[in-house]
């Protein structure tokens, strides 16, 4: 396996605080990789550095062999890295259909076409329909997003991210805030993501982590404390000490 996303000696300081402390990290192709750590461990900062929301103080981010450290957020999306947010970030006044059609048309490079209409392009239609079916959104595709229940909105969030056809998908706590009744459907959708998409899962929930992850990286105080397969991470005494405490899932 080869790495699709890497960081080299990534550092981010805010004033005197080092939020990301020399992280060298690698996401393998097709991986289901979980990034875990206690609150304040620097997970969010790390994701913001990966996606271009923040610029690192030092170090590099490499996507599919290309140094993307200084690229804008939207340029990284075009190169194949997409993300969901911990709290839904959606186009509230649009329908799921419109939102997915928009992401699709941007991916196809139609964003500057001011005089075309979306329904004339068979590729937009085909790919939008494909995403709606894959994420089971056909029944609600014409509802306004703001009117949907939170769990459905979460599905739209993941579906619209997927519409960018990412090679790397960052899922920031995909099940956060989703009521128990809608949780199963959502997790099934996450489990059904195609194998060639590499997934980095930022998560607190141990059940989700041990259900999906094939590899786990533990962050503590902005540093990588441990990195390995779920079994060895669960047995690692330093991890148990720093993060899992007495609560063991092994």
């Amino acid at each position: 396996m080869s790495a699709v996303l890497q960081t080299r000696n990534l550092v981010k300081t805010f004033g005197g605080i080092t939020a990301t402390d020399d992280i060298t990290f690698s996401l393998e192709k097709g991986a289901r990789h979980a990034l875990i750590g206690p609150n304040g461990a620097g997970k969010t900062t790390f994701v913001n550095l990966l996606t271009g929301v923040l610029q690192p103080t030092a170090g590099a981010v490499i996507l599919n062999g290309e140094d993307i450290t200084t690229l804008s957020r939207e340029a990284r999306v075009k190169r194949g890295m997409a993300r969901t947010f911990q709290i839904n970030q959606l186009f509230a006044t649009m329908t799921p259909l419109q939102m997915i059609a928009l992401v699709t048309s941007e991916r196809l490079g139609y964003g500057l076409r001011a005089f075309n209409v979306l329904d004339h392009d068979p590729r937009v239609i085909e790919q939008t329909a494909d995403i709606l079916a894959r994420f089971r959104l056909e029944d609600i595709m014409n509802e306004t997003i703001a009117s949907l229940p939170y769990g459905k909105q979460r599905q739209v969030e993941i579906a619209s991210t997927f519409a960018a056809q990412p090679s790397v998908l960052l899922l920031d706590e995909p099940a956060a805030g989703v009521p128990e009744a809608e949780r199963r459907e959502l997790l099934d959708i996450v489990a059904a993501l195609p194998a060639d998409v590499s997934v980095l899962l930022i998560e607190h929930d141990m059940d989700i982590i041990f259900r999906f992850a094939t590899r786990i990286t533990v962050l503590v105080n902005g540093r990588v404390l441990a990195d390995g397969d779920p079994v060895s991470i669960a047995r690692d005494p330093a991890v148990r000490e720093a993060y899992l405490g007495e609560e063991s899932h092994a």
Binding site: R73, F85, F91, A92, L102, R107
Partner: peptide, 11 residues
């Protein structure tokens, strides 16, 4: 609607 999501959608 949402500038954060717009940028994250490639806009």
């Amino acid at each position: 609607d949402n500038q954060l999501r717009a940028a994250a959608s490639g806009v």
